[in-house]
C-alpha cells in the first residue's frame, strides 16, 4: 500500500518534470515553430541564475528560483530573438543551425564562467514519511510548480487579450498585422515568455539535479519528444504527453530499472508517433488550447 503511494508519487514527479522542462519549448516550438536547439541551455541558464542569485547575492531561495531565474532567461531570450532568431522565422533548417550554434556558444560560456563541474543549491524543503518510506518534500514543490506553469499558460492564452493576440499572430501573421498589431513585437514577447518558462524550469530543478555546462543534453531530447508527441495544442498536448510518458517511464523503471525505463519512454514515443503522426492533441483535443 505504501509502495503504491510511493510509485504514484514518483510518477507524478516525472510528469511534472517533463511538463516543466517542456513548457518553454511548447511555446517556442509548439506555437512559434522555432526549433530551439539551445532549449537545454536556456534551462541551464535559469539554473545558473538561481544559483548565483541565491549563493552569491544572498537572495531568498524561492525568489531566486521563481522570479530571478525566469526574468534572467527572458531577458536573454529577448536578446537572442532580436539578434538571431527574428531573421530566421519560417526557415526551419537555418533556425536549427543558428540555435545549435547558440547552444555550443552557451556551453562554452558556462564552462568559462562556472567551470566544468556541477554547481547546485541545497533543496529548501526536507523529507517526509509515508509509512515505511521517506520521500522528498521538495518533489511536492516541483509538482506544484508544474501545475502552476500549466495553469498560467492556459490562463494567459485563453483569458487575456495578449494571449488572444499571440495566438492570432501565430495562426496568421498577415491577418494580425492587417489589424494593426506589430507582429514582430508579438513574436518577441512570445519568445521571451517561452524563455522565461525554460528559465523557471532550470531554477526549480537546480536543487535536485545540479547544473553543469553540458547538462542541457539531459533536457533537450526529452523536451522535444514531449512537445512533438503532444501535438499542436500547447496546453492539452503538454499535459497529455507528459502524463503518458511519465506513467510509461516510471512504471517501467519500477518494474525493471532506470535504463529500461528510459528505453521504454523512447519506444513509447516511436509507437505513439507512428500511430498518431500529428501528436496526441492532433487526434484527441483538436482545436483546443
Amino acid at each position: 500500500m505504501d509502495l503504491a503511494a510511493v510509485v504514484v508519487y514518483e510518477i507524478l514527479y516525472t510528469i511534472a518534470f517533463l511538463a516543466l522542462i517542456s513548457a518553454g519549448l511548447a511555446v517556442v516550438f509548439g506555437m512559434m515553430r522555432v526549433v530551439n536547439l539551445a532549449h537545454g541551455e536556456f534551462v541551464l541558464l535559469g539554473g545558473y541564475a538561481a544559483i548565483v542569485s541565491h549563493n552569491t547575492l544572498g537572495i531568498n531561495i524561492f525568489v531566486s528560483m521563481l522570479v530571478v531565474a525566469p526574468l534572467a532567461v527572458a531577458v536573454f531570450g529577448v536578446v537572442a530573438e532580436r539578434l538571431i532568431i527574428r531573421f530566421l522565422y519560417g526557415r526551419l533548417i537555418n533556425t536549427m543551425l543558428a540555435t545549435w550554434g547558440l547552444s555550443l556558444a552557451m556551453i562554452g560560456a558556462f564552462t568559462l564562467i562556472f567551470g566544468p563541474t556541477t554547481t547546485s543549491i541545497k533543496a529548501p524543503i526536507g523529507g517526509f514519511a509515508v509509512g515505511d518510506y521517506s520521500l522528498s518534500g521538495y518533489t511536492i514543490f516541483i509538482i506544484a510548480s508544474a501545475v502552476g506553469v500549466v495553469l498560467l499558460i492556459f490562463g494567459v492564452l485563453k483569458y487575456t487579450r495578449a494571449g488572444l493576440i499571440a495566438r492570432g499572430a501565430m495562426q496568421s501573421a498577415d491577418m494580425a498585422s492587417a489589424f494593426g498589431y506589430d507582429t514582430s513585437k508579438v513574436y518577441m514577447v512570445t519568445f521571451a515568455a517561452g524563455s522565461a518558462l525554460s528559465g523557471l524550469a532550470g531554477g526549480v530543478l537546480a536543487p535536485l539535479v545540479g547544473i553543469g555546462p553540458t547538462a542541457g543534453l539531459l533536457y533537450i531530447a526529452k523536451a522535444f519528444i514531449t512537445v512533438i508527441s503532444g501535438g499542436a495544442s500547447v496546453v492539452s498536448g503538454l499535459i497529455a504527453s507528459s502524463g503518458f510518458f511519465g506513467i510509461v517511464s516510471q512504471a517501467v523503471t519500477f518494474a525493471t530499472n532506470s535504463v529500461i525505463g528510459e528505453i521504454g519512454l523512447l519506444v513509447a514515443a516511436v509507437i505513439l508517433l507512428r500511430l498518431l503522426p500529428t501528436g496526441i492533441s492532433g487526434r484527441f483535443f483538436r482545436d483546443r488550447l
Binding site: V6, E10, T14, S136, T139, L218, Q250, S258, V259, G261
Partner: peptide
Amino acid sequence: ADYFPLNVSDFGSTIAKIQK
C-alpha cells in the same frame, strides 16, 4: 546492484526501490 548510464540524473524511483 543497479547500473546507471552516465547521463542519468533522476534517482527518485531508485530511492524508493532502495527503501523497499
